[in-house]
């Protein structure tokens, strides 16, 4: 299972890239996409929405079920990957690249310290 070293991860399997705190990309991990399989629909938040860490901010649907996606950190949604609404395949095919869902302008970058680093996340999913 691919767990990139530079990312942070939530217990609920969202990843966030901490290197650009003004527009930190967020998606779901390779592990999560493999568990979900066959993502067929994504409901993404509006640009400008404020989210709190742990708040449901999007819905991801596989053939079988709908699941919430939680904000891994607090802040403002500054960009949404609109292309995924039309074609969600990148979530399965390229979860850390084309499968990014939103970018969050972090209101409290210190929150990232409470997330898993790559090593801790690898243990979390093992």
């Amino acid at each position: 299972m691919n767990v990139p070293d530079q990312l942070r991860f939530s217990d609920s399997h969202e990843w966030i890239d901490p290197t650009t705190p003004d527009a930190a990309p967020v998606g779901v991990s390779d592990h999560a996409q493999a568990e979900l399989t066959d993502v067929v629909y994504l409901e993404l938040p509006e640009v400008g929405r404020m989210v709190s860490k742990g708040e449901p901010m999007a819905v991801i649907e596989s053939v079988k079920a709908a699941n919430d996606i939680y904000a891994p950190a607090s802040g403002e949604i500054v960009e949404v990957n609109e292309g995924l609404a039309e074609a969600p395949e990148p979530v399965n095919e390229d979860p850390y690249g084309g499968g990014w869902m939103v970018k969050i302008k972090l209101s409290d970058p210190a929150e990232l310290e409470t997330l898993h680093d790559a090593g801790s996340y690898r243990e979390h999913i093992s």
């Binding site: 568990e35 399989t37 066959d38 596989s62 053939v63 079988k64």
Partner: peptide, 19 residues
Amino acid sequence: ARMLPFAGWEMPIQYQGIV
């Protein structure tokens, strides 16, 4: 397989993916 309860049985819902 991913196993889930169905009708009182623990059964495979999917292996590599439903599609």
